[in-house]
Design a protein around this nucleic acid. Structure first.
Lengths: 160, 160
DNA sequence: ATAACTGCAAAACATTTGCATACAG
DNA sequence: CTGTATGCAAATGTTTTGCAGTTAT
């Protein structure tokens, strides 16, 4: 849906490159291959999907490198990490994408994105009252969607 | 801090008992021992802390039973489960305790609780716009606290 | 040159599962 | 009695780690 234009991909590569240089870390082909794969993906993905996606292309990167690089990308705000109910972490590219929160269907696990300005006010209130330096937040709303193909639809077959 | 009075513990036991009866499930001593331990704990705990806490008392319950019973307690709304950044789930008793969200210090991992009525409005908005039947939410705000013993305090020693 | 990075496979970790035994109803 | 729950230990699945070999700088 939200494929990133070439210009932005270059911008993102430059951000990562600068970040690595500033920290005295190496610019390896693996790291940029992972960055490219992340930004070629729209939506949420997990570490293994990224690993498999890369393996299917010419690039061979190990899982360890995928995890390592994801951590770097999170540190420079090019990727965000989410822990939805399950134990497997999900990731998402973060550059030039609207700040949003998530709606999770407990039946089909589908994710929907939404945004509400009130959350900003809540963050400010909390920062003020608790003398907290707020960095980021995660708001997950869980419930049941009403889509045709959702296993919970009224009228779908019985369940144990 | 919020130790539960005897009356409420009885109430909670009754809720669990009714829940089990209604579902045709057994009222085992292990299940009630776990319930008691949960309600003897104030604040957040993980499955293993519960397991160890029980082992230190007379009761011997296996980890499998701890996990099983926690799921039952979640189903009858006596316990809530949280996934903070780490892969280990945290639990918290839910009966007769205010609905709240969490503030997490990224330095010391301390948890603070807060509540803001605006979150209610956000849930309603989302339910309406997305035709979603909202069940619950989790709002986590991450940042840096300003407590004396927090490793991030300005003036604390350098770190690698 | 040399310190950082990679890949691999093993380790760690929380949680789940299978099965023989125990016990609540 | 009978089927459900338990305990144990083994299995699972994700993420981390140790180390020998590789490579960016």
């Amino acid at each position: 849906m939200t494929l990133i234009p070439k210009r932005q991909l270059e911008e993102v590569r430059r951000i990562f490159s600068d970040f690595l240089r500033d920290r005295g870390q190496r610019q390896t082909p693996e790291r940029f291959a992972i960055l490219d794969e992340v930004y070629a993906t729209s939506g949420h993905f997990d570490a293994d999907e990224l690993y498999v996606g890369l393996k299917e292309k010419e690039v061979g990167v190990s899982r360890a490198t995928v995890y390592n690089t994801l951590d770097l990308l999170i540190e420079c705000d090019l990727v965000v990490k989410h822990q939805f109910g399950n134990k497997q972490a999900k990731y998402e590219r973060a550059y030039s994408y609207w700040q949003h929160d998530h709606l999770i269907c407990m039946d089909c696990n589908e994710l929907f994105e939404f945004c509400d300005p009130r959350i900003q006010g809540i963050q400010e209130m909390v920062a003020d009252i608790y003398q907290f330096e707020v960095k980021h937040h995660s708001l997950h709303i869980y419930g049941h969607c009403r889509r045709e193909n959702c296993p919970n639809r009224p009228g779908s077959e019985a369940h144990s």
